[in-house]
Design a binder for these strands. Sequence first.
DNA 1: GTACGTGCAAAAATTTTGCTTTAAT
DNA 2: ATTAAAGCAAAATTTTTGCACGTAC
Lengths: 148, 148
Amino acid sequence: MNDPDFECKLDRLKQLSLEQGLRLTHQRLEILRELAAAMDHPSAEMIYKRVRVRMPTLSLDTVYRTLWTFERLGLAFRVPALGEQGRFDGDLSPHHHFVCDACSEIIDFTWDAFENIALPGTEAALGRIDRKQVVLRGLCGKCVPQAA
Amino acid sequence: MNDPDFECKLDRLKQLSLEQGLRLTHQRLEILRELAAAMDHPSAEMIYKRVRVRMPTLSLDTVYRTLWTFERLGLAFRVPALGEQGRFDGDLSPHHHFVCDACSEIIDFTWDAFENIALPGTEAALGRIDRKQVVLRGLCGKCVPQAA
DNA sequence: GTACGTGCAAAAATTTTGCTTTAAT
DNA sequence: ATTAAAGCAAAATTTTTGCACGTAC
């Protein structure tokens, strides 16, 4: 589907591979493609199942290793979710997550007002801040009606 | 040490126990005490080790079951941490977490400016929002000097 | 006395590791 | 040709579950 986001990440992976002596394997390529196409913050196992359809020899441990590699390279990051399996996000643009306590769905949202306020004066006390993210919790639109 | 926070939570646990037919067991009491005293967002295993010192028959599965019960009751909640073991927080006052990518330490901070801005207009789209929390990531004061 | 909760042990689920083989450079 | 990375299987970790016994109410 020639996803522009995938193309961009692919270029970045190629560049990083050159710089750091990493190898551009089919597995990394397919996992990157799947991550760029996924809108649902997939777990390692979800990615494994999806990529396996077209690459049946893929193993789950490779997915884990690849995801950690991508995180280290800044091509993906782990979503600060609650319990369950680790969930990954390939969308690097500034956005935040709403987690439904009932169905565990993770919904993205943006929040301009948040991006614009200054960090608390504690920055010196905390150390170096690389990323800031909001996690909202509650019940999603589908689960609210079913609650008592 | 007659921690006022523990006393308050104990009262709440007693009240909820009465209301919901829960039993006020020694295990729940000691786990609640440990959680109220802990400042380090302990994992189930950390709580297990600490309480076991004075209650050697305690089992780890009871700690898990108790923590989930406390979360359901609103006496504690799981910290949106990254990977690793689940970490719990008994401090219910509005505060946020800084997670060090190097040593995994979780540091609390407050952020008045954040509390005061309005949620994005997407609330209707998301559903019911029960809790909002910021997760900052980076390197803590101890780990910054050791980074390249 | 009556369940609810605990302890124990075993299982399930998730993630990591050692080692051999494959393949990218 | 070199050597990072993949695949496989097994282990390690973390969390959950079934069941018999204990205990708060």
